[in-house]
Design a protein around this nucleic acid. Structure first.
Length: 644
RNA sequence: GCCGCUGUAGCUCAGUGGUAGAGCGCGUCAUUGGUAAUGACGAGGUCGGAAGUUCAAUUCUUCCCAGCGGCACCA
């Protein structure tokens, strides 16, 4: 070790402060100014986050983290988790603590306790947390030998902690943090004292079950979630954001806007109503046009296929518990959970020449999967769904080009739906998989080469590939910053082998094609759910179930309203008319609530002049336009993005 | 599937060991009003399902189903 008597600390602005010996972040902060003493939370030492109380013994580049820094949030939240654990241990000493990390927007802590926490407990715990913050306990770091630490926690009755430490490699020092009487295993860093967390900057949110170490074979722990922020204002803003997100909830809007419903007799399987089905059909027609442009052929295959096919394909092996089956003819049939094996059957009819490749086969195939009951979530996770599914049969040499073209197509589609921000993840071989390692080496190499050629940045998602091949996953970000994984592109050498797909090459020999599985939207159900939340129900004109409502001021205009309505329908628009004897205020309010994008009002004046007064959703402005001009505007606006 | 919570009118929700209520919506009538709620009257519920405790269950208990929040899973 290169210890010098003097310790020189270089600050971000380049200035250097020298101390005669080891120095702590706190001392440094105090030297710089009293304001910083108060605001300081931790210190970055040569890129690592340290506690303010930890002694710096060598010359270092340092930066003090204050509560104004983003980095402060994670530390703060981690501390909130510790304060939560301390409060729980004080209130319920029989509870064992396990882990409690900072997460997006907050923190959680998992406890082992026979009796689950209730929401009433949350208020009590929260109160105790405030007390701990007011006590302003010092948070003290110490190190302990691994084996000593295991004993230490066992003696305290904290078996889970002991198990965690036992899993840390031998010889590695263990850091402990003590605040009041509460000691926890932790990497740190932490705030200097509990008082640094604002007592009105956090809130406990919910209780939930969570498996020990995330494994469903293990016992279930009691998890308490909380949110924590630097300021009360930030906390409030976050809570408002949650409320806003709730308003967009597609399940709520789906009901309100009469798009679809679910019921007990068909859990997880949507009943589409006329409004929702209109959106669905628009999207399907759009995708069909795009696919045609990209030289896909559309097919349709059976819903019910003998189990034997699923055994051959390997799906039954891995997913039989998630497949619906039915008996008939002394055979077991499975409702198809996916389309690919059926597409291979189509491919296998007759003889395909290398000249026919790449062969792009698309199907809006209705699939069923018995999803675990706890997984169901509105349209986002269903048991019956349709994908914009397609399989490309091609040669190895064609993979790259196909991938490039697909990426282009996918970005085009996302853009048409208003999603410009797209992330790509590359998922490689999972532990449980079909096909030998040579095949996987080949498939992964081909896919990486392809995505590189497509010019897309991607992040690695190790072990998350499909059982038959690696995949790219396309993630889009919605209007309120949430990520949704939708598109996929998978390279598959396994299924063609298992289902014996062949083509005749230019050498007149038989060869295996490679199969590329791909989807852009993923499931229509889920994508529509995403769109509902993206637009908060205010669909763009081309998707709006009702595009325009015509209504009169008084019943004297009824005939004229009928005539305008007929012209709108004749123009191919999804129009409604409202002839009820309600006041115009009432009708405007109602149709605005229904999120109808355009309202045409005809009073005596408009009827006389053959005009309409147009009111657009979200605007109080009224514009009186010539009827034909208004209809033409609406027609232009209601074209799908690819038709403009 | 696992942990917890919830399930009352079409919707949102209140309520009670003695078989139920509001607002909105719906229907009828009146009203003909220029851009986010006109008024009156009326219809509508075996209180998620099954069993149990009780003189009596929508209310208490158990089981089942579904939904919600998480966890696990997601070809």
């Amino acid at each position: 070790m290169n210890k010098s008597a003097n310790v020189a600390l270089t600050l971000p602005d380049g200035s250097v402060r020298t101390y005669p010996g080891p120095v702590t972040g706190s001392i440094l902060a105090a030297d710089i100014g009293p304001g910083l003493t108060k605001a300081a939370i931790a210190i970055v030492v040569n890129g690592d986050q340290w506690d303010l109380s930890r002694e710096i013994e060598q010359n270092s580049d340092v930066a003090i983290i204050t509560n104004r820094d983003e980095a402060a949030l994670e530390i703060l939240r981690h501390d909130a988790a510790h304060i939560l654990a301390e409060a729980v241990k004080e209130l319920y000493p029989e509870v064992q603590v396990t882990i409690g990390p900072a997460i997006d927007n907050g923190f959680y802590y998992d406890f082992a306790r026979d009796i689950p926490f209730t929401t009433d407990d949350l208020a009590i715990i929260e109160k105790r947390m405030v007390e701990i913050i007011e006590r302003d306990e010092d948070i003290i770091r110490s190190e302990m030998d691994r084996n000593d630490a295991v004993k230490f926690f066992h003696n305290m009755g904290e078996d889970y902690k002991a198990e965690l430490i036992a899993a840390i490699p031998e010889g590695q020092a263990i850091t402990l943090y003590k605040q009041g009487d509460f000691i926890d295993l932790c990497r740190g860093p932490h705030l200097p004292s509990t008082g640094k967390l604002g007592k009105d900057c956090f809130k406990l949110m919910k209780v939930a079950g969570a498996y020990w170490r995330g494994d469903s074979n293990n016992e279930m722990l009691q998890r308490i979630y909380g949110t924590a922020w630097r300021t009360k204002k930030e906390l409030k803003a976050y809570l408002i954001r949650l409320e806003e997100a709730e308003k967009r909830d597609h399940r709520k809007l789906g009901k309100q806007m009469k798009l679809f419903h679910f019921q007990e007799e068909a859990a997880g399987m949507p009943f589409w109503h006329p409004n929702g089905w209109t959106i669905y059909q628009e999207i399907e027609a759009y995708i069909r046009r795009i696919q045609k442009n990209y030289s896909y052929q559309e097919i349709k295959t059976p819903q019910l296929v003998d189990r034997i096919l699923w055994e051959k394909s390997g799906h039954a092996d891995k997913f039989h518990e998630h497949m619906y089956t039915t008996e008939s003819d002394n055979r077991t049939f499975a409702l198809k959970p996916m389309n690919c094996p059926c597409h291979v059957q189509v491919f296998n009819q007759g003889i395909v020449s290398y000249r026919d490749l790449p062969l792009r086969m698309a199907e809006f195939g209705s699939c069923h999967r018995y999803e675990p009951s706890g997984a169901l979530h509105g349209l986002m996770r269903v048991r019956s769904f349709v994908q914009d599914d397609a399989h490309i049969f091609c040669t190895e040499e064609q993979i790259t080009d196909e991938c490039i073209t697909f990426c282009k197509m996918l970005l085009e589609v996302y853009k048409d739906f208003g999603f410009e921000d797209v992330k790509v993840k590359f998922s490689d071989r999972p532990d449980v998989r079909a096909g030998n390692d040579n095949v996987w080496d080949k498939a992964e190499a081909a896919l990486i080469a392809a995505v590189d050629s497509a010019g897309l940045d991607y992040t690695l998602n190790p072990g998350e590939g499909a059982f038959y091949g690696p995949k790219l996953e396309f993630v889009l970000t919605d209007a309120i910053g949430r990520d949704w994984q939708c598109g996929t592109f998978q390279v598959d050498y396994v299924l063609p082998e298992r289902l014996d797909a062949q083509y005749v090459g230019s050498d007149n020999d038989k060869h295996r094609p490679v199969m590329l599985h791909r989807a852009i939207l993923g499931s229509f159900e889920r994508f529509i759910g995403i769109l509902i939340e993206e637009h908060a129900g205010r669909f763009p004109m081309w998707l709006a179930p009702t595009q325009v409502v015509v209504t009169g001021i008084t019943s004297d205009q009824d005939d004229h309203v009928r005539s305008v309505y007929k012209q709108l329908i004749a123009a191919g628009l999804r129009a409604e008319m409202d002839l009820r004897s309600e006041k115009i205020n009432y009708k405007i309010r109602e149709h605005s609530h229904a999120k109808t994008p355009a309202i045409y009002v005809v009073g005596a004046r408009e009827a006389e002049e053959n005009t309409v007064t147009v009111r657009r959703l979200g605007s109080k402005q009224q514009r009186t336009l010539d009827l034909n001009a208004a209809i033409n505007d609406l027609k232009a606006e209601s074209l799908a993005p690819d038709q403009r």
